[in-house]
Every structure is written in C-alpha cells, then in structure tokens.
Write a protein that binds this DNA or RNA. Structure first.
Length: 426
RNA sequence: GGAUGGGUGGCCGAGUGGUCUAAGGCGGCGGUCUUGAAAACCGCUGUGGGCGAGAGUCCACCGGGGGUUCGAAUCCCUCCCCAUCCGCCA
C-alpha cells in the first residue's frame, strides 16, 4: 500500500495512476476520510492525556473523599475516550479498506494501457524461432507419445487441472530445479525450500486476496491458512515485521515451492495441457533492497531470467507490462514469453516485478541506516526463475525432432543424465 | 495432540496494580585523560504517530488481539510463538 500522507499530498497523481491501472478507487473520499481520521485522532489523544493526568493524581490524593471524586472524573473521561475511539476506529477501518485497494505507483516508462494488448515487446532472446521440416506436435501429444504426463490420472485423483509427471518428465523437473538453483547460487542467492501453506495475513501482505469469489487462492477449511500461489508469498513473509541493517541489503533468496491456483473464471481459455494448471513447481527469486537500488535490481532479475532461458535454448521475447496489467503491488514488471509451437504463439513463462515499498509497508519490513535516526521501508522484488510446467511446454515443443525424440539442451544434460528423450517412429 | 515453563528496548536481564518517566549490565555514540590506543571516569543512546517554524510537547507501544480498573509490563480471556517432556509419525 501507499503512504497515507503521500496520497493526501498527491491526490491528483494517485487518481491518474489509478485510472491508468484500471482501478476504480474514490481517492477524494480517501482524502476526506484521512482528514477526518486525523481530527478524531487528536480528540482521542487529548482525552487520553487528560485521563492520564487524573489517574496519576489519584495515587497522590490526600484523602478518601478527594480520591473518590477524582475516580468519578476519571470514569467520565474514559467513557468519552471510548466513544471518541470508536468513531476513530470506524473511520480508520473504512480508510484502511480503501488504502489496501489503491495500487502501487507506476514506473514512468511502463507503457500505459488497459490490458496486456498494450504490453511492449522490448527484445528477443538469443535462440531463433524453430523451423520444422515436419508437422510439430503440441506438448500434450508429445507427452502422450513419450509417456511423460498422465492428465487422466491427475483428473481422476484431483480433478481437471491436475496431472502426474512421469519418467523423463520427472527427471526434467528435477534437472530444471537444479539448473535454476545452481545458476542463482552463482549470483549470490540463498536457496531455500519454503512452506507450501501460509497464513492469510501474509498472503494479504504480499497482495493476494485469500477469500472471495474472485480469489485465485485455495484456503484450508477451519484454519487461517491457504495454499500458496507462489513462493513470493512465503519468501516475502519470511522477514515480516523485521527491521534490517542497511549493510545487510540486498538480501537475495531463491525458493522452491509448489504453487496452487484455483484459476477461477479461467475456464475455456488456454486450459489444454500444462499451460494453466492448479498445481506446479516453481523456483522463485525474491530480493529485499534499498529503495535506490531496486530499479537496477529489477534489470538484474530480468537478465538472470534471460540467461536461464537462453541456456535452455528456448526462443522468447521480453515484454514491458502495461499499467493496466500490472496488478496491485508491482511498480514495474517485465515478463518473458516463450515461443510455444503448439499454441503458435508466445506464452508467459516468467515475470519479474519491482514492488518498491508496497509490500514492505503492508508486511512492515524496514531497514535502519547506521548513524541515522528512525527506520524506513525497504523495497521488495520478485521474479520467476523457472515455472516448471510452462518451461516443460517450451522445452518439449521447441526441441522436438523429426524422429519424435526431444533433444535436451546442453545446460540440462549433466542434471538430466542424458542428451535426448528417445522418440518413436513417425 | 497433551503437560509444564516462558516471550520485557540492538542484546542480556530486573520488574506481580499507582514517581514505570521500565532498574542494572553489555553493546553503540560523544567527551575527559593519553603521543596514540586500552583501561578508568562522565554524558547520551528504542519504535511509530499527532501538534509545532523550532526548542519542544503530547499519544501509543513490554509477543498479537480483547477484557477488568480512575490507573495494567503486572490481573483475566483468547490466539501466536519459543523451550522441555510425553504421545503419534515420515
């Protein structure tokens, strides 16, 4: 969320930003409520002050009669305080509701537009689009012929959108994880495996809405826990409530987790195969930085993603995400979209965001500069290293051969233990 | 899951209803002394917020939330977390 005072002092800017992002928020109402909140806060503080004075005087009162009269005075003041506090609370609650809906500011270079149609292609990866001298198959057909994925069993066990990986697909998943982790460790990231569940409070701090008809989140009945949609949630939550020394930044984590998504309302749209599934494994980067370093760090995350996909020899394009497609927390977002021959189009495989202090303010993560008074909110960034299910699609479809085999890119061979998934006679 | 003991400032730790304005120590910062340093001594040293041009002043904060009371770190309820033991278990 944004700083309250900033919103009041920059109401026009915030309004314009909300419009660019397609967020319908009554910013004027917010400003009005914030002013009212301050007035009520002053009232409560003054009453508290008076009541504190009275309470202190009781201990020093000289006789019983005086004590009793002061007590009565105290009772009245406390009653008034309570009434004033109730008014303050109700204003604050409405204000907070609004505040949480206001999206982050946007980077001046982010393309302005209502949705992903306005996303701006920046450049392409090193690998050219494949040219097949045979009719290429999509990953679902390939997986079936090579016995790599069992969608039917997944559906029987857990429903549509679930699947079993089998045989070389399992080795590929492990190889992809190892490849990503080794690369990131080389970049100074600390590898972690994270819980696959988190408290709803943490989900909300990162910017997810755990309940409601539109939610992407599976929640666990009779608890305040949800299945995580990304390790961003747990990695960001790892330091919730903490104040770090500036010298300890940046803190770079990479987490392996499963990701669970209900995909509510997504039916009928790209639901074939592994593209839009309810569960997948993902290696995620998460970074806590100083504010002045977050822009450069976002570029770095994007570069790492490019290196990972160049290494996998998968063609992709890099996209600068339009304001209307940024979601709530992101200030700027770059996606990598891999070429997927089966779909005949590019499909999102990674996403890197600079969330500036938006998540840090919600999660109360601060830093302290040696010799300076007070603390400030740090910046958080996240980026996909490898989302296994979508990386699998791109790998299988781009590296398929005329004989039905799949060539394993050089970078994965040592982890995979082979250079080819054997095919079948076409 | 059950039992017991805990959670206090950057860290350790005292504090069981009213000068708590949270003792004391460690660490940190500044000073005295010294050629310099150490030691010793002296002083300062939390976070968030309100009002104020500022000096300053007020409010809140002792794991989170709620309650009792004129008054809560202290009493009550509840949740979370930590430690130890028991049970279950890969």
């Amino acid at each position: 969320m944004l700083d309250r005072r900033f919103i009041v002092e920059n109401a026009e800017l915030v309004k314009r930003n909300c419009a660019n992002r397609g967020a319908r928020i009554d910013v004027d109402r917010f400003v009005e409520l914030e002013q009212s909140r301050k007035a009520r806060l002053i009232e409560v503080e003054e009453l508290n002050h008076k009541a504190n004075e009275v309470s202190k005087s009781i201990g020093k009162a000289k006789d019983q009669a005086e004590r009793e009269s002061r007590k009565e005075q105290g009772r009245q003041l406390r009653q008034q305080t309570q009434d004033a506090q109730a008014k303050l609370d109700s204003v604050a609650a409405e204000l907070d509701e609004l505040l949480r809906q206001i999206p982050n500011l946007s980077h001046p270079d982010s393309p302005i537009g209502a949705d992903d149609k306005s996303n701006l292609e920046l450049f392409r990866g090193k690998t050219p689009l494949p040219e097949f001298d045979f009719q290429p198959l999509d990953h679902v057909e390939l997986a079936e012929k090579l016995d790599l994925v069992d969608f039917e069993a997944g559906a029987n066990v857990a429903g549509h959108g679930f699947y079993f990986l089998k045989n070389d697909a399992v080795l590929l998943e492990l190889a992809l994880q190892r490849y990503a982790i080794e690369t990131l460790m080389g970049e100074g990231f600390t590898p972690v495996t994270t819980p696959d569940l988190a408290r709803n409070e943490i989900l909300a701090g990162i910017g997810f809405i755990p309940r409601g008809p539109e939610t992407q989140i599976y929640s666990v009945e009779n608890t305040d826990l949800s299945l995580i949609a990304t390790a961003e949630i747990t990695l960001g939550g790892m330091l919730a409530g903490q104040t770090l020394d500036a010298e300890s930044l940046p803190k770079q984590l990479c987490g392996i987790s499963h990701c669970f998504r209900t995909e509510a309302g997504a039916h009928g749209r790209a639901t074939r195969g592994l593209y839009r599934v309810h569960q997948f494994t993902k290696i995620e980067m998460f970074v806590f930085t100083l504010p002045e370093e977050s822009d450069a760090m976002l570029d770095r995350l994007r570069e790492i993603e490019c290196r990972l996909f160049d290494g996998l020899e998968i063609p992709y394009r890099v996209v600068d995400t339009a304001t209307g497609d940024l979601g709530g927390p992101a200030y700027r977002k770059f996606d990598l979209e891999a070429w997927m021959p089966g779909r005949g189009e590019f499909g999102e495989v990674t996403s890197a965001s600079n969330c500036t202090d938006y998540q840090a303010r919600r999660l109360n993560i601060r830093y302290r500069v040696k010799g300076e008074k007070g603390t400030r909110f740090l910046h958080t960034l996240n980026g996909t290293a490898i989302a296994v299910s979508r990386a699998l699609i791109a790998l299988l479809e781009n590296h398929q051969q005329a004989d039905g085999s799949i060539i394993i890119p050089e970078a994965l061979r040592s982890w995979m233990g082979k250079e080819r998934i054997a095919g079948w006679p076409r």
